[in-house]
Design a protein around this nucleic acid. Sequence first.
DNA 1: AACATGCAAATGTATTAACAATTTAAGTTT
DNA 2: AAACTTAAATTGTTAATACATTTGCATGTT
Lengths: 242, 242
Amino acid sequence: MIFKIDHSSPIPLHAQVEELLRSLIELPEYKNGGFLPKEVDLAKKLGISRNTLRQASNKLEYEGLLIRKKGVGTKVAQKQVTTHLNEWHSFTQEMNDKGVAFTNVSLHTEWVKADKKIASFFEISPETSILKLSRLRGDDDGPFVFFESYFHPKIGLTGNEDFSRPLYEILEKDFHVIPSFSNERLKARLASEITSKRLKIAKGDPVLIRERFVSDPGNRPLEYNKGFYIAERFTYTISIKR
Amino acid sequence: MIFKIDHSSPIPLHAQVEELLRSLIELPEYKNGGFLPKEVDLAKKLGISRNTLRQASNKLEYEGLLIRKKGVGTKVAQKQVTTHLNEWHSFTQEMNDKGVAFTNVSLHTEWVKADKKIASFFEISPETSILKLSRLRGDDDGPFVFFESYFHPKIGLTGNEDFSRPLYEILEKDFHVIPSFSNERLKARLASEITSKRLKIAKGDPVLIRERFVSDPGNRPLEYNKGFYIAERFTYTISIKR
DNA sequence: AACATGCAAATGTATTAACAATTTAAGTTT
DNA sequence: AAACTTAAATTGTTAATACATTTGCATGTT
């Protein structure tokens, strides 16, 4: 490692040192919790005052890259953000891209009468016929979620659409409605007889139930969706900004 | 305004000055874009060296509360207009919004070693001591959620804070950290022995587990939070805009 | 072995000092 | 009036120095 601190440069020393430290802490000898040389030595080696060195390292400490401890020394913080960040986000994105990462184990459509809850959300009378789409979805290890979707009659779905395509693509491209708002409710329950059979789990195994109330940009109701997830195989992940 | 800088106090001068500045910039004469007294004068008035004053104001500048300009002066930053939506809240706020009167059934703090998962999120070494806050919360019908919170050591919590106050109020007002981002994971499990005892439910009853990874506006990790909810008594609701 | 003491090492705090760089305003020249 | 020059004001940079505080270890004591 060559230390190139240029006292005649227009760039302030502490800025140069800051950059130097940033590359320094990437070196294998320091990378994972390694201790930096002590301040007095490092300052002398760089030909700068201890104050200037601290001016630089203060910033890195504030950023959480360095951890200084009185009486002990200064070490490099462990940092591996990317791995677990991706881990949390990945499933959310899969969820958001509806249908992309899953296979449809089975698929079924029928016309049913709207129940009270759905009629209320759709703002229609309870006797109205609506399209119900049932899907069992999973991956190589078998099914892990059972979905029931109900669609507002105004959309114009017939039930003969190719539902192996992503649902929202069908809605947007073929029917020109844009799912924009989703109100979600999550709860946990024990699997009922019928649910356990569908998901091939034991009756009484925990199931995560997600209801979605989906609306368009004008806040008009489009879809009511209920999903039954095998709890052991599902983690719901969200990123929220305040 | 009375300046009370105590040279004999065990609290470092720069820390005292920092607090002083924080209250100073709330004053109407400085509040929105007002110029602070120049460094030399202010330092003299406070009876401290200019460097010490700068040590304090540096931090506020880094936080975006002060704007310094060479040759001009130091002014208080204009209050940021909040554009982001208040989409998530602390538990206290959540419950208050819903009108649920809850109580802290029990509350306990202790210092523990960070485990691998937390250390990774906090970007600290696994041996580091961190503050753990355990809370059992409920209402008239008994407890319905057990929380475990772990806090980044950088925040400076001692464990002696009054945790009957809203947590995020403590963090923001007393420790000047702003929880801004939350990464959440939800899953459902059957209650373990210990969990069932805490929540006074039968072992094997379904439990909704919510993990939160909370960060500040600079994406620096602040808190890891894990909550065990009695599934029957809890529904998680969220509105998402695409 | 357990505990207490003390020393050395390392960062933390604080002061003083001097000069550099930038901006604003005033003054001067064209 | 416009352009240039100068000076003052204010923050930015850097250094040297001294002492405080915390931690860990070595040493000694019980």
